Simulated scan of single mutants.
Amino acid sequence: MIEPDKHPHVRGFGMASARSRARLVARLEQLGVRDERVLDAMNRVPRHMFVDEAMTSRAYDDTALPIGYGQTISQPYIVAQMTSLLLAADERPDHVLEIGTGSGYQAAVLAELFDTVYTVERIKPLYEQARRRFAELGYRNVRAREARDDMLGLPSYGPFDAILVTAGAENLPTALTEQLAENGRMIVPVGASGGGQRLVVVRRQGPSFSRDDLDAVSFVPLIEGHD
């Protein structure tokens, strides 16, 4: 875990970004985010470091922003909501997998809360950029991997206590449910892009899986591997 405001070499270091993060956290509380652990993590992560410099002035708006290659950095409320759902388990997950690194922002928030975070990205320039950001910010518990075209997830590193998917799957990705540990949970947007997606919580109990469909969401499509 880090305290970015103690690192003056970080772009945007200073009270301006600290105040901006505090305003964002206050906004998240107004929207119903109640988990203090999540709010503290969101307050610690310098979101402006995960967007292009041209977008810095909007970094702490509660909105998704473009990061190139047809991808976005997720809306902070969605990041907080999905992270809160992972923490809602009876036991705090230790071994977490994120599908879709993107800018690296969601993985950084997870790294503030969990012991080990694996994150995979298919778009090579985004993967390389995110790795540089993790190194610069001192997130040594993040293990970034470039996704392979022939598989979804990281089965050789599993099973995982929790899996968070930051792209929308048309159907529940069984390749990922099989990578869940006993009593593990997965948070994934499921449904057709363009208005039909809902946030889904999947829980594993032995060979069985339960599913809860929650709020409507909008994510870029998940590109699944093929055998």
Rank of each mutant, 00 (worst) to 15 (best):
V45W: 01
P46Y: 10
H48S: 10
F50I: 10
F50N: 13
E53G: 00
E53M: 01
A54G: 03
A54S: 14
T56W: 02
S57T: 05
R58G: 01
A64R: 15
L65R: 11
P66W: 14
I67R: 15
I67G: 15
G68S: 09
T72H: 10
T72L: 10
I73V: 13
S74W: 02
Q75I: 00
P76C: 11
P76D: 13
V79S: 03
T83S: 13
S84Y: 00
L85Y: 06
L86G: 12
L87S: 05
A89S: 15
A89P: 01
D90G: 12
D90I: 01
E91P: 00
P93Q: 14
D94K: 15
D94S: 15
V96D: 10
T101N: 07
T101K: 13
S103H: 03
Q106A: 12
A108I: 06
V109E: 02
V109C: 02
L110M: 14
E112D: 12
E112A: 13
L113C: 13
F114I: 05
F114W: 05
F114T: 04
V117I: 15
Y118W: 05
T119V: 08
E121Q: 14
R122C: 06
R122F: 03
R122T: 07
R122D: 07
I123R: 08
K124Q: 12
K124W: 01
K124T: 09
P125R: 08
P125L: 05
P125E: 10
L126D: 05
L126H: 06
Q129V: 01
Q129P: 00
R131A: 13
R132D: 10
R133L: 09
R133V: 02
L137Q: 10
G138P: 11
Y139P: 04
N141I: 10
V142A: 09
E146D: 00
E146M: 05
